[in-house]
Write a protein that binds this DNA or RNA. Sequence first.
DNA 1: GCCTAGATTTAGGCATGACTAAAACGCAAA
DNA 2: TTTGCGTTTTAGTCATGCCTAAATCTAGGC
Lengths: 233, 233
Amino acid sequence: MSPRTSHQGRSTRTSSATTSVEDYAKAIYGLSEWDGTAVTASDLAKALGVSNPSVSTMVRKMSELGLVDHRPYAPLRLTAEGRRLALAMVRRHRLIETWLVREMGYGWDEVHDEAERLEHAVTDRFVERLDERLGHPGVDPHGDPIPTPDLVMEHPQTVLLCRTESGARVRLEQVDDSVPEALRLLEDRRLTIGAAVEVMRTEGRDVLVAAPDGDLRLSHEVAHAVRVSVADR
Amino acid sequence: MSPRTSHQGRSTRTSSATTSVEDYAKAIYGLSEWDGTAVTASDLAKALGVSNPSVSTMVRKMSELGLVDHRPYAPLRLTAEGRRLALAMVRRHRLIETWLVREMGYGWDEVHDEAERLEHAVTDRFVERLDERLGHPGVDPHGDPIPTPDLVMEHPQTVLLCRTESGARVRLEQVDDSVPEALRLLEDRRLTIGAAVEVMRTEGRDVLVAAPDGDLRLSHEVAHAVRVSVADR
DNA sequence: GCCTAGATTTAGGCATGACTAAAACGCAAA
DNA sequence: TTTGCGTTTTAGTCATGCCTAAATCTAGGC
């Protein structure tokens, strides 16, 4: 304990990115990565839990910082630099989650919020030590790929479960770590990454699935949080 | 990765303490713990690297929060509640440092800044898991006692090396983790916690010390960062 | 007992990042 | 082509927490 405190001074990643800027970049990236859809300002506002005007202001700032391309009233796009920042945050987030599950005894449905805060607080150095200690994992506990140190990320060939055709035999590949209902439901049914299931049919927006331990019904929300690979076609 | 972000919601410790409030509380506590001296507003400003008016404003706020007792122009004193907050932060800080040194391969002179940021980002739950994982350590790598979960801290009988009498045979007990010069100097000379040394004499503000590997001269700054126990008297 | 030096507080600003209310835009249907 | 509605941006605030400059208090020297 002591006087002297020596604040600040943290990382080599995109200089002068505040916690908010980091969150915005990651959210923009995340929205397009998961869905493949164009990202509008209101999507972003909803994702971040802030108002539309807040997004408007922040996007202008990030545009000035060279992190997003944004022509007024058009969808948002990250620049190469912005994508780099986002991927750095994704890397941090997923390595931290992997570590919390493997070493700190957390469940896969408990790590998201903790990682959400830690990712802004650690140095690049810490992240690289973590990566080494964990043996350079390729995916996190939810099956999400972890970008390499030079920020390249493999995109596995997967589809959203809610868009799968009836009768398809699929393998569970990724679950959105921010949807605890999905994580808990799958854990209850002993369905982990790699599990083989068959899509029986859809009823309204629900998806009915046959799993080794019995059939189950997934709400649209849950089915939208799950990505699978098609076993045969 | 995903939309939904679910910010906030973190800890049971003194509700609505911002990062700044946590830092101020810890600094006030630290100044009086290490020195035993009364803490003035300017001491605090210097310790935190902020201006005196900033301290003035923040102290009023903390006074309203019931964390400090402060009559204008008088020295600062933490309330019981403020001391609890400070001790919770000290506990976090020291457990994080212990973990960084023991498990993440950091040197004892490298952990301070990293811990300084992490301590604001982790939950109580994380801290308790860490404590368990580390086997409930009593002191951190610098010899500083770690408060128990119910925030009791043992104060070992130690004195500042710069106030030790000539001729005293002493044992190295604690080194201020925020003074890297001291940490590096001692490490170079293979002097770790528990090492036995003899205080030869002082020259001006420097302290001359006889150690197993040879004599050395400690500047006042370094000698002020070291606490020792007197071996015999 | 006064007076000045130094510590402390008040006054007034700035940057960040959020908000609500209101204006401006753009697309689609009539 | 024009209207209308939902989206997006602008305008104007607020809370934090920092700053500098100026006023004020306290204490020590005479």
